[in-house]
Design a binder for these strands. Structure first.
Lengths: 213, 213
DNA sequence: GTCTATATAACGATAGAC
DNA sequence: GTCTATCGTTATATAGAC
């Protein structure tokens, strides 16, 4: 791994991965150029092949890292043993924050999975990633106990994820349609970090509006 | 336009555009190959340049068509003069149906806009597309009259669009995580055509659950 | 208008000097 | 390990026969 740490602040392999991440996340596998990645890393194109053999293997490294960055955090938060509404509030806030910190991550992952579903299936089995059944059961139990309305857990989960991710993925479209400045958009997304949870809880709660707040 | 309609069921230019749509929608600008489009159209590669000069101009034709297919329908439905809740129900149903009929359309548009924001801005100004202010005002008025909770119209609009589009764009991810078959997924999406409206109306309604149903 | 053949450039990948 | 130079291939695009 870190064989010769002599003078560089960062090893060449790490610099390549950083550069590859930047380029692949923004341009995708098909749109990225090895030359561009080399330039971004400030090194020569041959080095890319020296460390990662091929474009595809370099891409795989970036893709695996992206998967490992998105899903474990979901799994972790959704496995907390806290009341459902608290869990939703924490999840929404943390997840939107995470997406905003890595704005190209969700689009990149969705896109590449759409174009190479096989690669995704393998990686999922191999990493043993599983969407937390705990959360699924939370919803089911709360519905049965009459704490929330009767809703298919999958339906609710997809709604939650959609409300978190879509505004990040569709940022340029939203900005374009509503003529938002970067600042407008940031304000909007900051508001979402807590308002999205209200929106969800309002919808599934049995009580009156904001009864849980 | 239709200069020599002699024996072909469909003119060459139209066949090319059909093929280009299929390929560009699924693989994007960077991933598409002119040869592949020619094969899909059942004609020669040189014909593509004869009718559309360059890959970029062929892409532009497909992209403009996609924009023209997505937005006018939104604008139309959202301009109806009917009660807000009815409008939301109709919109959600029709929009999810439209997305399901053109499953690659939303991802294609979002993606290409993200990678070429300039092209989008020009097209928007040129086509005079504007997101219906009527709907924005509907929400604002309903909130002021106390018919719905106090919510930023933009916040609600983005939520609605997110709930309609995301599950279509992220189809392979959802199928992968929850091990859904194609049939499972179709059932799920069919349910969404009406349940998403319930979800939204539940959230913003002042009344009890399903008070509007 | 439609084809085959080809020009021209870009890309991923490798060889070989240091 | 890192570079320059280059190979082999594939992509877009065009020329020219029919």
């Amino acid at each position: 791994m870190d064989s010769q740490i002599i003078n560089k602040e960062k090893g060449t392999e790490a610099k390549i991965l950083d550069a590859a991440r930047n380029i692949f996340h923004t341009k995708g596998l098909a749109g990225a150029r090895m030359q561009e990645i080399a330039d971004e890393a400030g090194i020569n194109k041959a080095m890319l092949h020296y460390y990662y053999r091929s474009k595809e293997q370099l891409f795989d490294a970036v893709f695996k890292e992206a998967i490992g960055r998105i899903f474990p955090i979901i799994v972790q938060i959704l496995s907390y043993e806290i009341p459902l509404f608290d869990k939703i509030r924490i999840f929404v806030k943390e997840y939107i924050r995470l997406m905003r910190e890595n704005p190209y991550l969700p689009g990149f992952v969705i896109n590449e999975i759409t174009q190479h579903p096989d690669k995704f299936a393998n990686l999922f089995a191999e990493k043993g990633i599983e969407f937390p059944k705990v959360f699924y059961d939370d919803i089911k139990n709360s519905a049965e106990k009459g704490e929330i309305i009767n809703i298919d857990p999958l339906m609710l989960i997809v709604n939650i994820i959609a409300l978190c991710i879509f505004p990040v993925v569709a940022k340029p479209v939203i900005k374009g349609i509503y003529r938002l400045t970067e600042e407008d958009y940031n304000d909007f997304m900051e508001k979402r970090e807590y308002e999205v949870a209200d929106f969800i809880i309002n919808s599934i709660s049995m009580n009156n509006k904001n009864g849980d707040k």
